[in-house]
Amino acid sequence: MSPELLIAIVASSAAAATPLILAAAGELVAERAGVLNLGQEGMMLAGAIAGFAATVTSGSLALGFVAGMAAGMALALLFGVLALTLQTNQVATGLALTLFGVGLSAFLGRDYVGISLSGLKPLALPLLSDIPVLGPLLFNFDPLVYASLAVLAATHVLLFRTRAGLKLRAVGESPHSAHAIGQPVIGIRYLAVLAGGALSGLGGAYLSLALTPMWVEGMSAGRGWIALALVVFATWKPWRVLLGAYLFGGVTVLQFHGQALGIEVPSEILSMLPYLATVLVLVLICRNPRTILLNQPMSLGQNFFPRG
């Protein structure tokens, strides 16, 4: 394998992994609070079209990413009003949110099809990127690749090192106990869902502003579902999301570079791999009930009625 090809594969793996990391980190925060939001795909698409439209209109990439986050949060707020305030079924509401996001983004994106945009450029870290081979391999990515790592680190610190994270995990384990000791369960769940929406929206905007800088209907292409699978794959631990996302991102990239590498496997098989890997991980972690008990938020997907 030539160094150029290796560098290309690593760079595109990182780029492919970044939206997965962002969306999965968002979902992880929501799920740790006990909320299962299956609307990832919808929120990513909303983020993608909002980000693209904002950048096309304003010319600012930064504004595009902010718009993407805002769009993700708007859909998450809708989910929150339905599932947290009005107590609708979380699974059904999340699925509806995905369908809604797919439709809405296609509708709003009609005028943006075919427009191209110069996307987010790699940010070569000074000095570090000049190191031969390693430099371009590790230190020549766009800012959001680095940002996604920072997001994971921040998620980890938030969940396991801060009081806010302790409250969030407590709500996810037992909303009734949390309520009994005076924690605002619904409020905490809202914050978690909104944070999740913002990160999914950002992940979506990354698709249309960096990964493939254009708008295509349904361009998230199942990444929202992979992000959901990743959270389970990671057994609700932020750092394992990183591992999973790069693994899945790498598999996606292999689909494109497969021929150059002489891999004869049909790309459809490769695109099945992330899901098969998730099923395998599910089987493995379910073999040890202790893993589930200690990591899966116990109230996941359950609504909470504060009054007895």
Binding site: L166, R169, A170, E173, S174, H176, S177, A178, A180, I181, L293, L294, M298
Partner: peptide, 8 residues
């Protein structure tokens, strides 16, 4: 019925 968090 206690209001404790088992994983903490």
């Amino acid at each position: 019925h206690f209001s404790l968090f088992e994983t903490l």
